[in-house]
Structures are given as C-alpha cells and as structure tokens.
Design a protein around this nucleic acid. Sequence first.
DNA 1: TTATATGGTGAACGATAGTTCACTGTCAAG
DNA 2: CTTGACAGTGAACTATCGTTCACCATATAA
Lengths: 197, 197
Amino acid sequence: MTKDVRENRLKARIRDIADFYHKKGRMPSFSEIGDMVGIKSKNAVYKLVNKLEKLKVLERDDKGRLIPVSIASSVKMLGTVEAGFPSPAEEELSDSLSLDTLLVKNPQATFLLKVSGYSMSEAGILPGDMVIVDKGQVPKSGDIVIAEVDGEWTMKYLDKSGDGVTLLPANYKFKPIKPQKELKIAGVVTAVIRKYR
Amino acid sequence: MTKDVRENRLKARIRDIADFYHKKGRMPSFSEIGDMVGIKSKNAVYKLVNKLEKLKVLERDDKGRLIPVSIASSVKMLGTVEAGFPSPAEEELSDSLSLDTLLVKNPQATFLLKVSGYSMSEAGILPGDMVIVDKGQVPKSGDIVIAEVDGEWTMKYLDKSGDGVTLLPANYKFKPIKPQKELKIAGVVTAVIRKYR
DNA sequence: TTATATGGTGAACGATAGTTCACTGTCAAG
DNA sequence: CTTGACAGTGAACTATCGTTCACCATATAA
C-alpha cells in the first residue's frame, strides 16, 4: 500500500534526475535535486542520495560530487527477441548500459564511416549502414578492415592465412584482392550500425 | 613555428579534459583543470575555458558549471568507406557525436534485444545482432517491429497495406504471418547493432 | 621601436558545494 | 501504547566553486 507509493515516488525521482542529466549533460547539485523533486531541505536530499548510491543509480566522488552510474546508460539490455519483453517490474532489474561505452573503446581513435557498396552484403553489411572503425587496434586475420590498397579505399575481410595478405569480400560477385604494390590497413571495423528512419 | 606549439598544447589540454570526462563521468572543475594541464592560476584556466567554449569543445551553464559538447561524443563522423580517412588535420574538422544521442531518442523506453533467428537475414539482421527497440514509438507500415502474435514473440516487418495486418519476414524461407487471434506490437526497431569481438 | 594580443601568477570576492547537527511528524511492527 | 525506522525541515559549517581584479612576461604586428 504505502510501500508502493514510496517506491513509485523514488522511481519518479530517479527519472527526474536522469532527465536532468540527459538534458543538461551533467549531474544536478543537491539543491537542484531538492528543487526538482520538491524537497526543501538539503539534508533530505543527502539521505536520498545515500539511498540512490546503494541502489547503484549514481556514485559519489572523492569530493562528494555526483557521478552517474545507471543513469548514464541509455538502454536496458534484455534477452532474445523470442523471449520478448518481461513485465515492467522485471524490466527494472535488467542491467542498463551506454552504447558509447559498449561500442567504443578509445574515443580518440574511433570513427564512423558510411557504407556504399554491396561487397560485404553477405556479412550483413549493406549500403547505408555505418561502421565503427578503430584506428588503434591491431588488425588480425579474420577481422573486417578498412584498407587502402593500391590507391583505393575498401572494406574487406583481412585474410592472412595463405601466403601474403588477401582481402576477401563477403559477396560471391566480388573477387578477392591481392594487393599489388601497397596495402595500408587504416583501421579495424569493431561494429556495424544500421539506423532506421 | 610557435603557433604550432600553441595549437598542439591546446589539443593536448582538450584531450586531457576529455579523458577526465570519460574516466570520471563528469567535467572537471577549474582547479582540477589547472592541476591536470599544469596551470597554477585559476584565471589562466578561466581564459582557457573561454577559448574552449568558442571552439565548442564545452559549454557553460547558467551557473558557470562546465558541460561537455564535442567532448561528450565518442566517435567522429567521416564520409564513405571509399573516401577513406582524411588527413589528421581534416579529421579534426569532422563533426563528432555520441552514439547514445544518435541512436536513442527516449532512454526510458528503449531496450536492446538479441537476435537469434534467420527470419530477417535478407534485411541484414543476423543471429547474434542486437536491435534497439523503442517501446514508445508509434509503429507504422514498413517498420520492423517486435510483436507478440498469438502468444509468440517475433521480429518482422509490419505491413498494413492489404486488408488487416500482416507480419512479413525478410527471408523467402519464412512465411508471412497473419495474426489469428491477437497481435500486440511491443516496440519499433530503430536500429541494428553488430559488435565484433 | 612601440603597441598589442597572448598566456600566465596570485590574491580576493561572494556564491554555492556537500556535509552535519538537532529536531519533528508519520507510519508500521512489537 | 510504545518503539523505531523513515522522510523531511532548518540552520550552521567548512571547502570549493566560478569570477574578477591588478599585474607580469613573452611574443607578434605595426
């Protein structure tokens, strides 16, 4: 009864703080939290923050400043499509994460390129897709790489299994590439993104 | 000569601040910036921040607190694969963005589901891929949706063109689904993500 | 040469930060 | 009915915040 009311109020407050963070790009201060959720005393906010810290919604700095934890993540990870969506209560339990931290290891060396050809279509990489490319990663055999071969840029599978290096397309209509003069591997494709609408 | 030195020092400082932000989850204070980059006077930091604000690296709050702009984004958007990578100087000019803001409109209603079947493989959605699902979006004809049809969860194209509603697979080996009793559309697939390694 | 922008030091300012204390109701469990 | 946890008020505390002041050194431009 009143327990539900308390929980709902707590969730609403977490949502308020998360909204603030996503809109303003920083965590609110204690007094700002108080203004948001309708608490007049900073001490009450202090206790609220203690609770949220235990819930791993946020963390405290060594200097006491707030840093987001579950708040910073924009999506919640569920199971497979076949499993469908769980009940709202169970949704809460699923661990949430940020796409940036999931997909980008070192931001300084990571780029987004647009795909235009069909040469990798059998690997599920279609024209209009975007690939995340890490320039700092060491390319291994089997990786999809962005390479400059004899003056032209392509995206292909890197194959070091035979003698020399071969670039393999993922489309039977395209031919493997044996670099004649030079092969410069600029980066490794670490992820593919397709955005609808 | 000395101009290059100045620019490089500025870039190194921007990198320091970005590293701080990505590691600690919040922007540093003025004195923290001073400690990081080796400036003893907060006034010098103040002038530095003014410059970074003009460069759109960061912004200032109405209360003077720092919020990240280009610092918050983890990837830099380039052109097509065929265009390849530009020179490092041109790389700087490319606009950078955050994958979270690029792919997620409302974080509260967005989920990540894992794909397991081949029923959408011709749309470039393969087993092991992840789909970003927005539960708050209104499903339109042509969208890829997550639906519960007659008690089972699937991901299919939504087709409202004919009479009634049909769920279309993207694989000729699978058959279109005409819901017998009930069709609950739980969300719209807004993006596909494939992560390597 | 003389200006003048640039980048820095150091001290001071009021405002706000997070924290702590004492105190007050409210509700559920004993 | 009492007890104790919970949630909140209000005031005080120190530390740190961003800002501004006056001043200095070094380059670049006139």
